[in-house]
Amino acid sequence: MLRYTLMRLGILVACLLAVWGLVYSGIAPRGLGSSNGMWIILLSLVISAPISFVALRKERDRASIQIVEKVDRVKANLDANRSQEDEAVDEAARARAQGQPS
């Protein structure tokens, strides 16, 4: 997951540098007034999103598999804990029914 995040950040930085170069060379339009910095950031985000979507497809799939495996492990642990708790409650109920202290 960290690898995917760093790759995505790298694409964003590359787009940011490219847009900055285009704006300051006059090829791309400048923002209005003092909004030039915000314009560069927003344009970089808009450009980097589809690039990341296409270029990082395999890495995103790997990251999602890791997340699914982790969620499955957590669910299995919760189910195991829940069944242990149910067994303890059942034993206590049987002990009370038989008149034994728990």
Rank of each mutant, 00 (worst) to 15 (best):
M1G: 07
M1P: 10
L2V: 11
R3Y: 13
R3I: 15
Y4F: 09
Y4N: 13
Y4E: 11
L6P: 01
L6C: 04
M7H: 15
R8S: 12
L9N: 13
L9Q: 12
G10L: 08
I11A: 04
I11E: 04
V13Y: 14
V13P: 04
V13E: 05
A14M: 02
A14N: 10
C15H: 07
C15S: 08
L16C: 09
L16H: 13
L17V: 05
L17S: 06
A18N: 05
A18Y: 15
V19S: 14
V19L: 12
W20R: 15
W20H: 07
G21M: 05
G21K: 00
G21P: 06
L22H: 02
V23R: 03
Y24R: 06
S25R: 06
S25Y: 05
I27S: 04
A28V: 13
A28H: 08
A28Q: 09
P29D: 03
R30T: 04
R30H: 14
R30V: 03
R30I: 03
G31H: 05
L32R: 13
S34C: 03
S34H: 09
N36L: 05
G37I: 13
G37A: 10
G37R: 02
G37D: 01
W39G: 00
W39Q: 03
I40Q: 01
I40P: 03
I41Y: 08
I41S: 12
S44V: 02
L45E: 01
L45R: 00
I47W: 07
S48N: 00
S48M: 02
A49F: 11
P50G: 01
P50M: 01
S52G: 08
S52W: 01
S52E: 04
S52R: 10
V54Y: 13
V54E: 11
V54K: 06
V54G: 09
A55G: 05
A55R: 04
L56K: 00
R57P: 09
K58V: 02
K58N: 04
R62I: 01
A63I: 00
A63S: 10
S64H: 10
I65W: 12
Q66H: 12
I67D: 00
I67M: 09
I67K: 06
V68P: 00
E69F: 03
E69M: 12
V71I: 15
V71D: 02
R73V: 14
R73N: 14
V74A: 02
V74K: 00
K75A: 08
K75H: 05
A76P: 05
A76Q: 05
N77S: 09
L78G: 15
D79M: 09
A80W: 09
A80I: 15
N81L: 14
S83I: 04
S83P: 01
S83G: 11
Q84W: 00
Q84D: 10
D86R: 15
D86Q: 14
D86L: 13
D86Y: 12
A88E: 13
A88W: 05
D90I: 12
E91D: 10
E91A: 12
A92Y: 11
A92P: 09
A93S: 10
R94Q: 07
R94W: 08
R94Y: 07
A95Q: 08
R96A: 03
Q98N: 14
Q98G: 11
G99L: 03
G99W: 01
Q100M: 11
S102G: 12
S102Q: 10
